[in-house]
Design a protein around this nucleic acid. Structure first.
Length: 599
RNA sequence: GGGGGUGUAGCUCAAUUGGUUAGAGCGCCAGCCUGUCACGCUGGAGGUUGCGAGUUCGAGUCUCGUCAUCCUCGCCA
């Protein structure tokens, strides 16, 4: 007989009755009836009920064993009496009558309950992550993660992709987020950086002829956390394809994502090919480049209809170059006064001066602003929104950018409040045709996304078009309002690359200095190539229906990028710092704390 | 760095307008109980109300500061 077990806690069934078995696991719950004790023994695979009779020598001891200790039981599998069958458990037809018991690992009193999943302070959960991970929901999320990643590998391999590792210690890249740096011992004053993504490596692999690369790639960015953004590190299903177009990338990703989402969720998944929305259209209709298509509401432009109207608040905005955005919401004219007041408050909370609306009720228009609008204007608005009796149109007037942002927020809020968002569906879309350049805060032309993207019109566009009019082969994949990834057809021509950087104000020497590898590699016969890198954590977050990315990461850091279990970041020995030729220069505040006996 | 929420027993929460000795459920400890499966019953221990000032006859409650944590803006090629 095996030292610890002949069966797991999830596998014994009626057909095992009479067998002598050995099982090991955690004490999930103890039900002590004085004369008889039931223990639910739990492992990764399930729960099995152990029965302990008073005649057993270890009976007295068992009373005192705490939940979450690990114990090994040897005993006989028996049928439960009919009244005692538990249909909630797969093993509920049987139980094990214990003959021997061995304690494997005793547990202290646990800081929060594991068998009962009540809400619990997250700091405590992170400090005791190993216990939190025993809890069913988190345990299941991590298993889901494992299965999804495994399936991703299968699917990618099936599509002819090769998984290739790229360096974790690499050089700092000038673009993008803040890098995590690692000081070099051998080269005083020099630093490695952890990769923000294997971007340049995968492009180099393309020039090396590997044709189709992928990797479940760790990415490191020193940026602040959000609910859907874990600080420090995250994973991407990174991929790149040689001699490939945008459509080739879309085809592979639609196949893989559709398969993963269909296989690992009960929700309906959009048919492929996924909807493609040009960036400009997305901004006009949704006010964002990551629209939640579950929400049927769209924004429309009503600027011209308000240009010469008597409603001075709006006419004034239009006269000063602003816009009026409208959202038509069908069937909500009957909502309470409070609903409309709350919507106005909401709009104000996201930076709007107000929120106008027109309600069509019983053939009349009810609205604080209707009296300022002509019959003709009202009819045109009605036609624009395609509305009728029982419907409402909301209006936001502001400069284009804030109006779009406020409109996007109002659209989301209306979707939620009116229950328009189907929780049982995954709606995907590609956002395509991103602009190559945009103006930064100082009015300077800057790359709007990835400087390695291919301008759609090639050198001709770079030479002849207004930079702000140039579109890139740059795309995002969005699911239910979550941006899963950006990708692009890459610029594989050294000449185009130099020109593209030139427009953004970077000299050729900068390209050579900052991106020496790509600049050199592309001069030795680079294949056209394209790729993308969907975020693994976010995909699993959507599949697990979790609002928080930490729920799908085994050992996440908190918002301040600390690992409360391991104590990272932590202090190191002086000699370690010395070996790295570093001097620590603490902020005044921290120094004072240490002097006051802080550490 | 800015804005917002939260902080009361080991855990989740309550405590009316500022007013008696800060309560409940779970957990823990002790006792009872031979068919439970979130077992049940009885009893008990457990509190610097995050911390520090202030206002007040009186502060869990109000004010200020500070710390922790979450959400968010900035940031995220």
């Amino acid at each position: 007989m095996h030292r610890y077990r002949t069966h797991t806690c999830g596998e014994l069934r009626k057909e095992n009755v009479h067998e002598i078995v050995k099982v090991s696991g955690w004490v999930h719950s103890v039900r002590d009836h004085g004369g008889i004790i039931f223990i639910d023994l739990r492992d990764h695979y399930g729960l099995t009920q152990i029965v302990i009779d008073p005649s057993q020598p270890f009976y007295k001891g068992v009373e005192h064993w705490r939940v979450e200790s690990t114990i090994c039981f040897t005993g006989q599998v028996v049928d439960r009496i009919p009244e005692a069958i538990n249909p909630k458990l797969p093993t509920g037809d049987i139980e094990i009558v214990a003959k021997e018991m061995e304690t494997l690992g005793e547990s202290k009193v646990i800081p929060f309950q594991i068998a009962k999943e009540e809400e619990c302070n997250e700091t405590l959960r992170l400090e005791y992550r190993f216990l939190d991970l025993r809890r069913d929901s988190l345990h299941k999320n991590i298993m889901l993660r494992s299965k999804v990643i495994s399936r991703m590998r299968e699917l990618m391999t099936g599509e002819g992709f090769m998984e290739i590792q790229t360096p974790i210690l690499t050089s700092s890249s000038p673009e993008g987020a803040r890098d995590y740096l690692v000081p070099s011992r051998v080269h005083p004053g020099k630093f490695y950086a952890l990769p923000q993504a294997p971007q340049q490596f995968k492009q180099l692999l393309m020039t090396s002829g590997f044709d189709r690369y992928f990797q479940i790639a760790p990415c490191f960015r020193d940026e602040d956390a959000r609910a859907d953004r874990s600080p420090g590190e995250f994973y991407q299903l990174d991929m790149e394809m040689a001699f490939a177009t945008q459509d080739d990338v879309f085809e592979v990703n639609e196949k893989v994502l559709h398969q993963i989402f269909t296989e690992f969720s009960d929700k309906r998944v959009d048919d492929i090919p996924f909807t493609r929305i040009p960036y400009r259209e997305a901004m006009e209709k949704y006010g964002t480049d990551k629209p939640d298509l579950r929400n049927p509401l769209v924004m429309q432009d009503a600027t011209e209809l308000f240009r010469d109207c008597d409603f001075k608040a709006f006419a004034g905005v239009v006269a000063s170059g602003g816009v009026v955005k409208t959202i038509a919401a069908k069937g909500c004219a009957g909502e309470s006064r409070k609903f409309f007041d709350d919507m106005i408050k909401f709009a104000q909370s996201v930076g709007s001066k107000g929120l106008g609306y027109l309600r069509w009720v019983d053939g009349e228009i009810q609205s604080p602003i209707a009296k300022f609008l002509s019959e003709d204007t009202l009819n045109q608005l009605k036609q624009l929104g395609g509305v009728g009796d029982g419907d409402v149109m909301f209006f936001i007037a502001d400069k284009l950018k804030p109006a779009s942002e406020i409109g996007a927020a109002v659209r989301d809020e209306l979707g939620k409040r009116l229950g328009l968002i189907d929780p049982d569906v995954f709606r995907f879309c590609w956002i395509v045709d991103f602009p190559m350049y945009e103006l930064d805060d100082e009015g300077k032309v800057e790359f709007s996304h990835n400087p390695f993207s291919m301008p759609q019109g090639g050198m001709d566009d770079l030479l002849n078009k207004d930079p702000l009019e140039i579109l890139a082969f740059q795309y995002d994949i969005v699911c239910n309002g979550t941006e899963l990834s950006s990708g692009a057809v890459r610029n594989h021509s050294p000449e185009l690359m130099v020109k593209a950087f030139d427009i953004a104000g970077y000299d050729q020497s900068i390209v050579e200095e900052k991106f020496p590898a790509l600049h050199r590699a592309f001069q030795y016969g680079a294949p056209p190539h394209a790729g993308i890198a969907p975020g693994v954590d976010r995909i699993i977050m959507l599949l697990a229906d979790e609002p928080n990315i930490r729920e799908v990461i085994a050992f996440p850091m908190n918002q301040k990028a600390q690992d409360l279990l391991m104590g990272a970041p932590g202090n190191v020995e002086h000699h370690q710092v010395r070996d790295l030729h570093l001097k620590i220069h603490l902020p005044k505040k921290v120094e004072e704390e240490i002097e006051n006996g802080g550490e």
